[in-house]
């Protein structure tokens, strides 16, 4: 199943980098753009309910309603060595922000393979897939009445 249009375009463009070293540098450049969640959305210590289970990079996710029925994504990665988690956070935010929970719900965990390839460790796979799952889960509940 294709991803939402913006994310699919990103994945297609990334696939053009046949050289793994170039692809890695692209992902590092995304990680370098990472900005943690604003204080308006969450402040430390973060609620454990926003922690990505199984993520050793200590990633946290928040999803807030935005105009037009869409949602906004917010992330933090507490482990300064969690570069892949930071890259994934930027990729998810840049390509899913503003979409509806239904659209975000179509994103599969295969995104981790499409972005990072299939040679990640089991733990790293679990952490990054956890970010995708957590984003989908929180998006689905973003408009719930507190």
């Amino acid at each position: 199943m294709p991803y939402p249009a913006r994310l699919q375009e990103f994945v297609d463009n990334l696939a053009l980098f046949a050289d793994q070293a170039e692809r890695v540098q692209v992902l590092i450049s995304f990680a370098e753009k990472f900005q943690p969640v604003s204080a308006e959305v969450a402040t430390k210590p973060y609620l454990e309910s926003h922690r990505v289970p199984g993520c050793e990079s200590e990633a946290f996710v928040w999803v807030t309603p935005s105009e037009g029925g869409g949602v906004s994504l917010h992330f933090d990665v507490l482990n300064p060595q969690g570069i892949s988690a930071m890259a994934m956070a930027v990729i998810l935010k840049e390509n899913l922000d503003g979409l509806s929970p239904t659209e975000i719900g179509t994103v599969t965990e295969d995104l981790v393979y499409d972005v990072f390839g299939r040679t990640l460790s089991m733990g790293k796979n679990m952490g990054l897939m956890g970010m995708v799952r957590m984003t989908k889960y929180l998006a689905a509940h973003a408009n719930d009445t507190p």
Binding site: V24, A31, I83, S84
Partner: peptide
């Protein structure tokens, strides 16, 4: 040797080589 494959190419000790666990 890292779990995160982006770490070594993002910067490492000068002269250090990488041993990737998976690869």
């Amino acid at each position: 040797s890292n779990e995160d494959p982006l770490l070594y190419p993002s910067g490492h000790i000068p002269g250090a080589f990488e041993v990737d666990w998976t690869r």
